[in-house]
Design a protein around this nucleic acid. Sequence first.
DNA 1: TTGTAAGCGTTATCAG
DNA 2: CTGATAACGCTTACAA
Lengths: 339, 339
Amino acid sequence: MTTIKDVAKKSGYSISTVSKALNGYKDISEKAKNKIIKVAEELNYVPDLSLKNITKRESRSIAVIFSGLSKDGAADGIMYNIIAGAFEYANSVNYDVKIFTINAAIQKEISYFRFCKERNIEGAIVMGISSDDPYFEEIISSKLPVVLIDILTENMNVGVVSIDHEKAAQEATNYLIGIGHKNIAMINGKKNAVVSKLRENGFKKVLEENNMKVNEKWIAYGDFSRQKAFNETYKLLQLYPEITAIFCASDIMAIGVYEAAEKLGISIPDDLSIVGFDNIPLASFITPKLTTVKQDMYKNGYEAAKLLRFIIKNENIERHKILTHELLVRDSTKAINRI
Amino acid sequence: MTTIKDVAKKSGYSISTVSKALNGYKDISEKAKNKIIKVAEELNYVPDLSLKNITKRESRSIAVIFSGLSKDGAADGIMYNIIAGAFEYANSVNYDVKIFTINAAIQKEISYFRFCKERNIEGAIVMGISSDDPYFEEIISSKLPVVLIDILTENMNVGVVSIDHEKAAQEATNYLIGIGHKNIAMINGKKNAVVSKLRENGFKKVLEENNMKVNEKWIAYGDFSRQKAFNETYKLLQLYPEITAIFCASDIMAIGVYEAAEKLGISIPDDLSIVGFDNIPLASFITPKLTTVKQDMYKNGYEAAKLLRFIIKNENIERHKILTHELLVRDSTKAINRI
DNA sequence: TTGTAAGCGTTATCAG
DNA sequence: CTGATAACGCTTACAA
């Protein structure tokens, strides 16, 4: 490996002169500068940033941490978009992005904090972990700057980027009621995920506002899995054929719902209206096209990185960033005309 | 920041004793060891890996480099799967993964080599760049260990992971001919991408083997874009209604083909059979379900990281790794029964 | 068993 | 303008 020492030796100047020449300092002669630059190029010399940073005390890198990076995560593009968005912002302010999973830390049997510190990152964006995860407390109470995506916490020191899930669920439910549905079920995600609770609250709130009784049996948990959503829906629709609409907490689960309906010979949207959540690419390709709540995960990633940067710089800024969402009405919902 | 010095001071031992205690050396007393570990914990001391590595001369990190990390990359999950696969292997051998884009280097106006060297990575996985990219030569001729995904090169020092695209295209085409199609068009990707050429070769070869003349006008370039594929197909099918089957070089483009067919009132698979390429999640959700050539991008990423590791360790191993593919026959193709 | 000192590649200070 | 020298946090001979 070529080091600054090699350049010094070959150019005939001292190490410190070489360092200055290569870092654009003014107080050296043109002659020395040219010579040194020439030699550096000949030798293919490249300074190591992480060494520079020993003295400067900044690593200029952040991490994006997932709970897992599985083969199945691909279908919805959510994680990809978050990475891409975070990368774009980080890159624009000259930060590098490393990706980790919580599992990686667990495997090494070290703490989250240690894992990050060892890698000398300045902060982390965390997503896909639920608030009852054993690591959760450690993460939000650690000294390391952190931004959570879609994980709400009361802790106002922790950065949070999210849409208003409760409000979004309210809008979706209101829309279904508005087009005449009275028997609405919900396929929710993992029961103890924060977003699940919020969406469920929004759902229930609107039912109550409309004097419709909340039937707990009509709320099932599909754990954000297509298969589980299929199973739950299959059971639900057999037991309660009076259901005319289902609000799903993710598009992936909505696909499971589609499949359950198909298997039962129930036609969407004629017999059953479906509203999804996320607006993944699939949503507009599937037949019928899925009505869904759009959230922009690319933007989530971008804003998370931006907020993280502010927190790192210790700027006095609102820690909780709420992004906008939008109900996209497509073909999986239909005004009710029965009874 | 807590450093080894702080631990030394507080524990009353010297820096080197602390270092040894914390790194599991045998030649220290139980007493010293315990005390030091205790103090280190109290102080939340975590050694910085990159500093350790100054002496050891290994950074234990690799990069995954894309040509771009766009908002649109999400739909097919390909990049995500590559990242996930590469991450899994890297993680299993205690490597970290950083992600970069070629653009990031270009923006900083520095060379690929410099960009990587500065970041002190041991090697890189590169994908999504075409062989006529100005950076291509630099990448494959640089001293840095590199593995290309889906970019073939004669250079046997460079690692390459890919399926046999030519053979895959042959199988797809053979299948269409086997079920009776005689007028087969191809919507290819970017004209000068290596994979495009290979697939086109395979396509043409099979036509010739079957004594069907190759009509260059029936080969259009959709540039891997859904919109472009739509446009090209729309023109093609209007000009040549005798076409009964289309082989698409990507599933995303196949969707554009679906849309063009729909707009023209052409029914798939009754009037037109479609074969895609990739087997993205969407392929099995779209109606009709898409017949396609499956390639496992997760595995691509995994194998790329593995190969990269071998190259880094300078092991004598075959540099070109060919992965398996598979033709998945679904509902978008149908045996011909007209004329 | 412990500590001193040199070294890793780099930048910063300061005397010449 | 140049170059010793110290310093950054850490490991590792080697001496004590």
